[in-house]
Amino acid sequence: MKTLSYQTFKSETHKETAAIQKDDLETFSSQEPLTQPPKTLIIIPAYNEGKNIGAVLEGIQKQSPGIPILVIDDGSSDNTEKIVREHNAKVISLPYNSGYGVALQTGFLYAVKNNFSIVIQMDSDGQHDPANIKDLMEEVQKDNCDVVIGSRFLSKDSYKTSLARHAGMFIFGNIASLFCGQKVTDPTSGFQALKGRAIEFIASDNYPPDYPDADFIILMNRCGFKIKEIPVTMHASPDKESMHHGHKTVYYVFKMFLSIFVTLLRKSPKR
């Protein structure tokens, strides 16, 4: 008689269970479509957004009820965390301010760890309209799409911004379009929906920690992810400076050119 150790027994039982589950799933999927909605998470990085975050959360809860919201409090010194808790949303508090990219990536790490299959990322300053979440979700669930970017420039509503910022978006949008072989109108948009491997890719070392922008869109395109843009409504946030203001603009332009250049030089990482 064959004697099985506990580990072998566990592993073989697991294999059998997995095979049965796979068979069941295949039979089930061939007969009728899956009715179970995909596990979705909304990620919002926030830094000192006590004034705006409440309204943003209320807007999301009204427009997309039932979808869990995760706010990454990026070392805020105000009451951002308290307001998020009051609105029954999940909050991860980073011990100190680490920057937009790091906060966002933390959310993706959480999503990978908790097996979320769709992630919607949006800003905490009220710039993004929660009414568009539904559109992003619908689009990302289609077969020919891994990443959906909400573009303010495809929308009929005119988006007002400074000339310098507009010029930057235009230049990097055109560079991204050139190297992606498809039109990219809004590479700086933080209103996106991602699914499956794209979520894992952001949670990996490939993600730029400071300003994920045109460089990352080019990288994702090179790695074979299918990217699509859809029109969304974006409101200007008058009480807040952009993260690319002042001396940071010079660094941003330098970093973006350098990052795009080295992205093109590097061998594409595996998906």
């Binding site: 909050v91 508090s93 011990p95 790091v102 933390t106």
Partner: peptide, 16 residues
């Protein structure tokens, strides 16, 4: 910097 960043993210998630 990269190591500190990773630690920060994991501390945040573990704390949550």
């Amino acid at each position: 910097t990269k190591q500190v960043r990773t630690l920060t993210q994991h501390i945040g998630i573990l704390d949550h």
